[in-house]
Design a binder for these strands. Structure first.
Lengths: 353, 353
DNA sequence: TTGTAGGCGTTATCAG
DNA sequence: CTGATAACGCCTACAA
């Protein structure tokens, strides 16, 4: 197997040196705009470089400088638009600052570990990561102990890592409190409980604070990350026949799936079922019944994360102590949440349709 | 500014050689599983490598092998879930085949050029690209002439480039024909006309083939790529008062924005306005009125594109002639399209609400 | 202002 | 089976 690059020999500093009669060293300096080189030399060298279609070889540069000007970005393999939008914004921010981004996805800790090793092979200067399991971060601690810059994209407290994210616990507490304040007594919840428990914990906390009893069966963890998963999850909650009048969904994807379930089963939203989502994706705003949701500012998040990562990467010697940047999530109230109506629905009703 | 990697010296082949007493060369061979090295030597070397937490330096390897085992992936900076899902799938496919992915986004030709140069600096072995402007591909031709593997993620004919994509022209023709067959005479269209004209061309073609007159004012190009843009676009079409009874949207994002517009303005879908989208995103299926749309199989697309790119990258010498893989787009008929109803709506109606 | 020497970590070539 | 040696393309240090 031939390699891609001998096909068309790339020009190098040496080629420019040969063409102009200068030494490679002078060429290198000139191309980087050093004033140590005469203006005349710089001009001819730059012109020759353009003529030869010279492109600096980052891989050689990285080898000698021991820095690649590249960071790794690791996000979950999911179809949720919110993290995806954040990933795009992160790439943009890094690019604006002269960094390249190696990109990988992972949906299991094994894939995550493999991706991190791939990044290490590529000598990335830092890592932006939305970890699969928010409760087990030892591999990230190990990186930090080796003085390797890592910024986690999760608003979790007391992780011992640099983290930037929305305060999911507080935002979920607020969203649930909104429903409780409206008068709901039996609120279902759809969301992850093991890997990423912060949102459901916020949900629980609201029940505790407001003295509302909570049956564990009110909580269900959907399988997968899609509207279909939300639909199925809502169906399961409904079957449990707990007299729910409201739902807190840890993602708008779940919320909109649940809303579809309600439509199909003839349960009216919000009259018979209030729904609050999370992420404030655009579709929630354009849905037939607009969705109450938690807005998190992905742009600000991306900027803060990138700034922190760059600060870490530019630090000499040992890394400074980890920092947590918690951004507030803002509850946007729309049509899908209201006080509980008179008419209720039972699981029996769903069979009529 | 210190670099990230002197912070913690990484172990190298030389370190393992020193520790085990073998030469670096033997170590290199052993770690790559060469049978030229004795089993005993291999075992001790591998153990030492693990003890030293050795990670091969891809950057050094790339320098000598002249291949980085990395590809560039360049997609547009958009919020459309469909391309995003394809990008994720592409990354997965590449990763499964042992390649890393450098990721960049671009929304202008200038950004696209900058990203491509960045990729060249990183010595990527190939490029997967969804170009900003489908009508001007000269920069990609130049890459190909230099024997550089490029696969374009657009189902466009006669580009002189390797391309894998859905047959947008045909699919749009089919979608429009579906509306015409239902009896619609005045069909609006929302979609790009300059950069990515294939869908609108399919729309036009259906009019020609079926002898339906087409007023240019039936076509509007939304600004931006969002549901909001679709909403605004539909509002503009409505103001033109052309007696539209149906809409073809070149993206479900536009279609769902238009559907929201209809809801807000009291225009019923599909009774007064049939809507057909494109991309078959999950929201469309879970919308209150489910959306007729064109399904394109992103997974198959990603796999085909990656396979083609790898075939090109593994080619010795000159690249084979370009290949076009056109995947069919399948029209999925749902609730949002039906025969035109009796009641029509006028732009005046929209003011009543 | 410019040139020379050495080395970054790896692999391939060629000896032993 | 194993070990030197010479690249790959670039940058820093030191000389001229």
């Amino acid at each position: 197997m031939e390699n891609a690059l001998t096909r068309q020999r790339k020009s190098t500093l040496a080629d420019i040196a040969a063409k102009t009669g200068y030494g490679t060293n002078t060429v290198s300096l000139a191309l980087r705009g050093s004033t140590r080189i005469s203006q005349a030399a710089r001009d001819t060298i730059i012109k020759a470089a353009e003529a030869l279609d010279y492109v600096p070889n980052n891989t050689a540069k990285a080898l000698v400088l021991k820095r690649s000007n590249t960071v790794g970005m690791l996000v979950e393999y999911l179809t949720n638009p919110q993290p995806t939008a954040v990933a795009t914004a992160l790439q943009r921010e890094m690019s604006d600052r002269g960094y390249s981004v190696l990109f990988a996805t992972s949906s299991t800790p094994e894939q995550e570990a493999a991706a991190i090793e791939m990044f290490r092979r590529h000598m990335v200067d830092g890592l932006l990561i939305y970890p699969v399991d928010h409760t087990n971060l030892s591999h990230l601690h190990r990186l930090r102990e080796r003085n390797f810059p890592v910024v986690m994209l999760v608003g979790a407290r007391d992780t011992g890592l640099d983290a930037v994210g929305v305060d999911e616990f507080q935002a979920s507490y607020d969203a649930t409190t909104h429903l409780i304040a409206l008068g709901h007594k039996r609120i279902g919840a759809l969301g992850p409980t093991k890997d990423k428990p912060l949102k459901i914990e916020g949900f629980r906390h609201a029940h505790r604070v407001h003295g509302l009893p909570l049956d564990e069966r009110q909580i269900y963890e959907p399988v997968g990350f899609s509207m279909a998963a939300g639909y199925d999850g809502m169906a399961i909650l409904a079957e449990r026949d707990l007299g729910l009048t409201a739902l807190f969904a840890a993602s708008d994807m779940f919320a909109l799936g649940a809303m579809r379930w309600a439509k199909v089963k003839g349960v009216s939203v919000p009259e018979q079922l209030s729904i609050v989502g999370y992420d404030n994706i655009e579709y929630g705003e354009f849905s037939n019944t607009t969705l109450t949701s938690v807005r998190n500012d992905g742009g600000t998040l991306a900027k803060a994360a990138v700034e922190r990562l760059i600060a870490l990467m530019e630090t000499d010697g040992p890394l400074p102590p980890p920092t947590l940047t918690l951004l507030p999530g803002e509850l946007v109230v729309r049509e899908s949440s209201s006080r509980p109506g008179r008419r209720s629905w039972a699981s029996g009703q769903t069979d009529k349709l």
